[in-house]
Computed example of a mutant assay.
Amino acid sequence: MSETVPRAVLSGHVPSPDADRVIEPADLGSWRPRLVASDLDGTLLTSEGVVSPRTRAALDACWAAGIPVVGVTGRGPRLLDSVRTALDGRGIAVLAQGGYVVDLERREVLRAVGLPREQAMAVIDRIEAVAGDLILAVEDAAEQAEAFAPLRVQHGFDWPYPEPAHLLPRHAVVPEGAVLKVFLRSSSLGQDELLARARRVVDPAEAEVTHAGLGFIEVLPPGVTKATGLAVALEHHGVGFADVLVFGDMPNDLPMITAVTEAGGRAVAVANAHPAVRAAAGGLTGGHDADGVARYLEAVLAGV
Rank of each mutant, 00 (worst) to 15 (best):
A280C: 12
A279C: 05
L245R: 11
V109C: 11
D140E: 00
D81I: 02
V22L: 15
H274T: 09
R75W: 02
D18K: 12
R84T: 14
L80C: 04
E118I: 03
G76S: 14
A120N: 07
P33L: 04
C62D: 05
L230F: 09
M256T: 03
P222F: 05
F183H: 12
L284D: 02
A212K: 03
E143R: 06
L151W: 02
F216I: 00
Q154M: 01
S187V: 10
V179W: 02
L79A: 14
D103H: 14
T55I: 13
G66D: 13
G177W: 09
I217G: 06
D125H: 11
E176A: 13
A141H: 01
P275G: 12
L80K: 05
T85L: 14
D133Y: 06
A279P: 08
V72W: 02
V304F: 14
C62N: 08
A259L: 05
T46H: 02
G42N: 06
P175E: 08
G98M: 09
T285Y: 02
G286Y: 09
R7N: 08
I135Y: 01
L230H: 08
G49L: 12
T225N: 11
A263F: 12
H211R: 11
V173H: 02
A299P: 00
N252T: 06
V300S: 02
